[in-house]
Amino acid sequence: MGKVFESIDEALASWIAAQPLWFVATAPLAVDGHVNVSPRGPGSSLSILGPHRVGWADYTGSGVETIAHLRENGRICLMFASFDRRPRIVRLHGRGNVALPGDLAYDEVAAQRPSHPSTRAVIVVDVDRISDSCGHGVPIMDLVEQRDLLRLTANKKGPEGLASERAQKNTTSIDGLPGLET
């Protein structure tokens, strides 16, 4: 059994920021709905907003499951796993909210992140459980480099192309839940 933390302290925030990849998981309320797990990264893309609050910029590039699930029920889990010599997994469980341009939470997170042309929303999570586990089954891997394909694709599509993609692919989830309004 792992450790349960009282809050995200400086040491834990530093460890999170050092991870090259992390995951976000959400699910709809419907029993036959699809659970969604999405990769994110690096850990430095996550803003620690307080001892029980985190946020990140959500980019155009795939579906809208995280946004749709959060709007329906707010449940979310973020998972960070160490792929270096020291095994460790950290999970942040909480309630998430979607912030759009013009919202105070959007501005708070966006101010802490480098500008990205693909940003469509900001996700803010109020964390109610922080825990770690051994991670002994996670392989040791080497990071070759981070990809910059989202930025390159967004620049190629331009603001109008991104708006068109969001209108086509981000208005509803795969389970038919409301996503982004266009």
Rank of each mutant, 00 (worst) to 15 (best):
A11V: 14
R120E: 08
I8G: 02
S173D: 01
R147T: 12
R53I: 03
D126T: 08
L150I: 15
L29M: 12
T119A: 06
S115W: 08
K157M: 14
V54M: 06
V125T: 11
P28H: 07
A57K: 04
M141Q: 14
A110Y: 00
T171Q: 08
A167Q: 05
G135L: 04
H93V: 11
N170I: 04
P51K: 06
G96I: 06
R86Y: 11
C134I: 03
A18F: 05
D103R: 03
D132K: 06
D58F: 00
P101I: 00
H136Q: 14
I123W: 00
P87E: 04
P159E: 01
L143F: 09
S45H: 12
T66N: 09
L21C: 10
V144F: 11
G41V: 07
L46D: 07
V109Y: 00
R95Y: 13
A105P: 02
N170A: 11
G74A: 15
Q168E: 14
H69Q: 08
D132H: 06
P114L: 03
R40M: 14
C77Y: 08
T60S: 05
V35I: 14
V122S: 00
A25F: 10
N97T: 14
G137D: 13
G158V: 01
A27G: 13
I123F: 00
P39N: 11
H116W: 01
K157I: 06
V138W: 10
Y59A: 12
I16C: 07
Q146W: 07
A167D: 05
A13C: 07
S44T: 11
S82G: 12
E160A: 10
G179D: 04
M141K: 09
D103F: 03
D107T: 03
G102A: 03
H52L: 13
I174P: 08
N155P: 04
A121Q: 00
G61R: 01
P139N: 08
I123E: 01
F5Q: 04
A163G: 02
D142P: 06
P159Q: 00
S82V: 07
N73S: 07
R120Y: 02
T26I: 08
L29I: 12
V64R: 01
I48D: 03
R129L: 14
R91Y: 07
M79G: 08
W56D: 11
S173G: 01
S131A: 12
R166N: 09
W22R: 05
A99D: 01
V98K: 02
E65C: 05
M79F: 05
G33L: 11
N155L: 14
K3I: 05
G55A: 05
E160D: 11
D9L: 03
S44H: 07
G63L: 02
V98P: 03
E108I: 13
R85C: 11
E145R: 13
I76G: 10
R129V: 06
K169A: 07
F23Y: 15
E108Q: 15
